[in-house]
Design a protein around this nucleic acid. Structure first.
Lengths: 230, 230
DNA sequence: GCAGATTATGTCAGCCTCTGACATTCGGCA
DNA sequence: TGCCGAATGTCAGAGGCTGACATAATCTGC
């Protein structure tokens, strides 16, 4: 959860130690900035919110804002980033018996469920996160930045899968191809998710995701016209 | 090939008619802007090139630049955009007997080969295009914009495939899933392409693409550890 | 508890991207 | 030739973002 790009030092405190006043304060302003930004974004739109507004809502200078976030996009994508980190953690914990694809699928479902259960309401709740996702999808520049982040995560997935299966991703293309496929199916699912059609909350999303993964086999099968659709 | 976003009118000239001086001039300045931009970008980097430089290289005002391109990114992605359009054209022409995945694969290979043969050298050549691709991959903001464009193309692919197979993409998820998978495998291939390892020119790229698609089946197969890698 | 080293923040000045408004020039056409 | 509309130029300004430097806060060892 440490600050992202131009970020202040990533907390020199040892594991488990009380972080010290300075660190706590930093975390505090960072959180405040994220909160304020999200509120403003959802209220009046991303483009119509200036960095100055966000900064002065938290009573820091604009310059300070840019010391926490490399750009305006980044503060909007902060929640997503945390969720992605959690997904990677889940993936790392999946039992070795599962096939790579099974592990990925299980990890994504698990992370949605658990994050959903963890924070049910308030700012930073799963509902806010879903609204934010929607906004991202509707804001070209945000969508662009988001997609870039996703591809970075994909590289991490390649590494984790390769380690898991004990092979070299530069020789064997399967981890790369699998990560790519996984990412894209997931995104297709996110895109087709709408709060109107699906039950709100994580369960709705999980359902959509499962539905999309179920179509992976059929989609790649030979001739659709000679195969029964469902 | 008409100008993109804030673009001047998309040529009111009828099909086959001589476009008229005004239209020709517009096309000319547009091309000149693209050329100048690419030259500067490749020479001194994207970030270190200002819009003013590009504009004055073509002797137009900065304002005019922004009437042709919505932003600096767009002029950098112009070549890619044309290539993508050509790919869609190829896809539309693929024989109906091919399975959806076969058609996609054949169309991408075909479009690379034919574009490669068409302009062998000079600005706008396939070599320049490949250098540009590299630059895009290395420039975060460009990469982001590019990825967004790609996902837009993916929607077109969904439509074409759905028409081809005569089904409704809102009910049947296969076109969506297939397009997503196709796009991601393609991108993985692009990423792993390097002018050092592969033969330069389109054939090198085609080889990399084929290699990645060949791994699609194996990557999705159950347990890798019990299957022979190659 | 204090002095000195670190580090976060503020201030300021400035570049660059992008936009709206209005004036001017140029091509198309009767 | 003369009018109309489209393309371009000019200008002014908002907003994102950065480097440099000064100030204020925390931390560290004594």
């Amino acid at each position: 959860m440490a600050a992202r790009t131009p970020a202040p030092t990533p907390a020199p405190a040892g594991p488990g130690r009380q972080p010290g006043l300075r660190e706590r304060k930093k975390q505090q302003t960072r959180d405040a900035l994220v909160q304020a930004a999200h509120g403003l974004f959802l209220g009046q739109g991303f483009a119509r919110t200036t960095v100055d507004e966000i900064a002065s809502a938290v009573e820091v200078s604009q310059r300070t804002f840019f010391r926490y976030f490399a750009n305006k996009d980044e503060v909007a994508l902060a929640v997503m980033a945390d969720a992605e980190d959690y997904f990677i953690e889940c993936l790392r914990r999946r039992p070795a018996e599962e096939s790579p694809l099974q592990a990925l699928r299980a990890a994504i479902v698990q992370s949605w469920r658990e994050l959903g259960a963890e924070h049910r309401s308030g700012p930073g709740s799963i509902t806010t996160a879903l609204e934010l996702m929607r906004m991202i999808e509707e804001t070209p520049t945000l969508l662009a930045a988001h997609l870039r982040r996703v591809t970075e995560q994909e590289r991490v997935v390649v590494r984790v899968i390769a380690e898991r299966e004990g092979l070299d991703p530069t020789t064997d293309l399967r981890p790369t191809v699998l990560a790519a496929v996984f990412g894209s199916v997931l995104r297709a699912a996110h895109l087709s998710w709408t709060p109107e059609q699906e039950p709100a909350g994580p369960e709705g999303m999980v359902a959509v995701i499962e539905r999309h993964f179920d179509q992976l086999g059929p989609a790649l099968a030979g001739h659709w016209r000679t195969v029964t659709p469902r």
